[in-house]
């Protein structure tokens, strides 16, 4: 059930997702803004154009699946689900609070539309591969999408999942790497380099594409290319900016996980609504 939204509309949704992220994290008083803001366009395209999903039937067996392997970007995920109609946008203000279904990291048992609980890095990609494998085995038409963090690529399990997905020819599986190049302790190169990522993932038997992760057109094009490949899974390196859209957060490792003060909230809203 594609919405067929225009490019402009998808950009506007990415903006709305960013506003929701700041609102919900400001209310929560803790959480992960940087890596949430960097995937707004990716989620806008996936949830409003690419994926065959229906908020009215969240457990529909033939739906495309999505796994947020970098589970700490939950605020972006929740925003996308709410904007897409899975639940009331007002619920976003309860993020991380006691009795809220919106846990610090996604919980499939609590949130409508969440296909897999994540949070412990490296695990979501394996679960997503399992879903894609099921579809292949059972001749189901659905596709599986997974967003992985670049710091997360340091987890050995990611490489196990890459190996297994290529081995079993999971061409219905697309991984999008949020390559903002920052992790908690600093730049990915400095902490523990994952580069050259393209060559490594290609060597694992995947088709690898590179796009500007804030360019909606480019993401759409890459996803279309992934669909054409019926032999290997596809890995899309999305070059992104951590904290994208909020001046003082952009490219700042310190905004990986930090509370947004009232003052910072005001600046963020001004930046986003420029």
């Amino acid at each position: 059930m594609e919405t067929g939204y225009s490019i402009d509309k998808l950009k506007a949704i990415a903006h709305d997702i960013r506003v929701d992220i700041i609102e919900s994290l400001h209310c929560a008083g803790s959480g992960h803004p940087g890596g949430s803001l960097s995937i707004a366009e990716i989620l806008s395209v996936l949830f409003f154009r690419e994926m065959n999903i229906d908020p009215e039937k969240p457990n529909w067996e033939e739906r495309d699946r999505f796994v947020l392997s970098k589970g700490h970007a939950a605020p972006a995920y929740y925003a996308a689900l709410a904007e897409r109609g899975y639940f009331d946008v007002n619920l976003l203000k309860t993020l991380r609070q006691i009795n809220s279904p919106l846990q610090g990291h996604p919980d499939r048992r609590k949130v409508t539309g969440v296909d897999m609980s994540t949070g412990s890095l490296g695990q979501g990609i394996s679960a997503a591969a399992g879903m894609a494998c099921f579809a292949k085995k059972e001749n189901k038409k659905f596709r599986v999408y997974c967003v992985v963090g670049d710091g997360e690529m340091q987890e050995g399990e990611v490489w196990e999942a890459l190996m297994a997905s290529a081995h079993y020819g999971l061409s219905n599986f697309t991984v999008l790497l949020d390559n903002n190049n920052l992790q908690i302790d600093g730049s990915v190169e400095k902490v523990m380099s994952i580069y050259p990522i393209k060559e490594k993932v290609e060597a694992f038997g995947w088709e690898v594409l590179e796009v500007d992760g804030h360019n909606v057109d480019a993401i759409i094009e890459a996803l279309a290319k992934a669909k054409e490949n019926d032999i290997t899974p596809t890995f899309i390196i999305c070059k992104t900016i951590k904290g994208r859209g909020v001046s003082y957060m952009e490219n700042q490792a310190g905004w990986h996980g930090a509370a947004i003060s009232d003052e910072n909230y005001e600046i963020a809203m001004k930046d986003l609504n420029k």
Partner: peptide
């Protein structure tokens, strides 16, 4: 054989892979 998968010597991936498959409605 069609319902058996050797995951190689990669137990971490196997466990989550199994979990992902199971969410599609089948015991693993």
């Amino acid at each position: 054989p069609e319902r058996f998968l050797d995951m190689g010597i990669a137990e971490a991936n196997m466990m989550d892979f199994a979990a992902g498959m199971s969410t599609c409605g089948v015991p693993v």
